[in-house]
Design a protein around this nucleic acid. Sequence first.
DNA 1: ACTTTATATATCGAACTGATACCATGCATC
DNA 2: GATGCATGGTATCAGTTCGATATATAAAGT
Lengths: 180, 180
Amino acid sequence: MDVKTVCLGMLTEGPASGYDLKKQFESTFGHFFAAGYGSIYPALSSLADEGLVSCEEIPQDGKPDRKVYEITPAGHDYLCEALRDPCPCHKVRSEFLAAMFFAHLMRPEDVETVLENRLEDIARYQAMFRQFEVENASDWPEGKKFVLGFGKAIASAMEAYIAENRHLLVSQSTAKAANG
Amino acid sequence: MDVKTVCLGMLTEGPASGYDLKKQFESTFGHFFAAGYGSIYPALSSLADEGLVSCEEIPQDGKPDRKVYEITPAGHDYLCEALRDPCPCHKVRSEFLAAMFFAHLMRPEDVETVLENRLEDIARYQAMFRQFEVENASDWPEGKKFVLGFGKAIASAMEAYIAENRHLLVSQSTAKAANG
DNA sequence: ACTTTATATATCGAACTGATACCATGCATC
DNA sequence: GATGCATGGTATCAGTTCGATATATAAAGT
């Protein structure tokens, strides 16, 4: 399940441009599958080459043509086949946890800053989740609700864990040596 | 905070080979920062070129030389500077959630399989966490304990969420259309 | 007057992933 | 007795992805 496949999945909800998909990668998918233009545009080109999507170029004055992609029947078949992977992975890449692992090499005030910023980041996600709910979540398919709820549950768990255990990282034992 | 920096951090606990570091990336760091040989060996070469680690080649008969790397004072300074990033990121890349997002395009039995496999994966992580604790967790620095506890908390939250909400994904409404 | 935000496409080097190759020993299995 | 797998070890490579940047226009905010 690469960016290509996720783009194809997004196109099952209707035709869209690369720009439109980017907005989805930032909002609904933001908490579990981010992608930038450098992945999206090549993915769409490649999908078009393989006949999995069709492309309509809509001229615009001054701006580059808006390229609207639509999933084809072949694309739909390909997607359903890709979704049959029995073990789709779930990976975390956390520079935050890597830094905390080495907290004893950091200045206590820097550890505090990192924790505060992480809590703020979590709060931003939580605000986004609440926004989704007030907007339109009741119309959503069950899968979308499940994924949103998953994000909320994990965000709350992270928030609670940090609140309850941050004292471990800034105790008297943490490296005065690095605090020169 | 790239693979290079994390390798440098690992070397603060003592000299090690690329092979040794790989084992750490699979065990202690496995749940939040994975890396393969394709990242580790170039990282160590690069660190050696920059004088941040020194390398001792220990000849072995039949096998390639064992290269043991040791952090230098310059490496220690570099690491402490790298750890001062106030906003280290925490990213999730979940093919699992992407698949569940499109659960309505999947066969109900395939959705079940995916959920079961995810629960098994979580159970494996939990077993690993328990193993760390019985082995040596009491000697660990606070940061290491914090990160282990974080992994445990998030694993439990994921497990509980899936157990409580899986019924949403396999209700009568889920795509009979794809169930040809 | 200046900067940011939004619309829209696209590219590029650096980094990373996952698989594979090479080489030896030992252990289990067929 | 042969085949395959695990362990210990280094290393590369094609394919993906990341993050930043470039280009262009216009509305809207400061």
